[in-house]
């Protein structure tokens, strides 16, 4: 009888563990950084990330939570209306364009690691032209495996060619000739 109960409790524990794993939740932190340091690694441990972050300037931060394999979205900004006349409908129609800081993401699981599908976007209305529907943007769309607690340097752009775009996106920030703009994400 004892053996029977022991076996039963092991089975119940296993079931609970699997059910809990299905409900796993995460916190994602997205950052836009500026630095002239070129990272040696793109998947960093907590210590390596702290060291890299100390050499850079954080321009934007966004945090979101996620449940495993469920798509999530955080958006802070402006829905810019584009109005036009539709002959078919016989009335004016409005289409909205999202401008601001936006993060679409899904966290999945793959062989002991987590698989992130992510699309961060930072955009601003172009102040130079006066055309309301024209925007400057920094967008990345990618996927990669990552461990919990790691930080990934998702993308980096740098060089003299990028200077006008840097200025359009962050008019208050001074960019040196060797500065690059980074998207980073931490999974916790």
């Amino acid at each position: 009888m004892r053996q029977y109960f022991a076996f039963l409790s092991i089975l119940l524990l296993l079931t609970m563990q699997t059910t809990l794993a299905q409900d796993e939740t995460f916190k994602l932190t997205l950052k836009i950084l500026k630095t002239d340091t070129v990272p040696q690694k793109r998947l960093m441990s907590s210590g390596e990330w702290q060291s890299f972050q100390s050499k850079s300037t954080t321009l934007q931060t966004l945090e979101g939570i996620a449940r495993i394999q469920k798509p999530a979205l955080v958006f802070l900004g402006l829905k810019d209306p584009l109005a036009y006349f539709s002959n078919e409908a016989g009335s004016k129609q409005v289409q909205y364009i999202d401008v601001g800081l936006k993060l679409d993401y899904t966290v999945g699981k793959h062989k002991g690691l987590y698989a992130i599908e992510i699309r961060p976007e930072y955009s601003v209305l172009d102040p130079t032209t006066g055309v309301p529907d024209r925007s400057s943007c920094f967008i990345t769309e990618t996927s990669f495996p990552i461990a919990r607690g790691q930080t990934a340097i998702i993308s980096r752009v740098s060089g003299k060619f990028c200077q006008p775009a840097f200025k359009a996106l962050f008019p208050e920030t001074d960019f040196g000739p060797k500065d690059g703009l980074f998207f980073t994400v931490t999974l916790e």
Binding site: R42, C137, T142, S155, R156, S158, L181
Partner: peptide
């Protein structure tokens, strides 16, 4: 040489990815 532009992205095997810094220019 002088680096005019450097663009990099973290990706994985077999999945398309993109990075874009610039403008979205509307043509109506």
């Amino acid at each position: 040489g002088e680096e005019l532009l450097s663009t990099e992205i973290l990706t994985e095997r077999g999945r398309p990815c993109l990075v874009h810094l610039g403008r979205k220019w509307p043509l109506t």
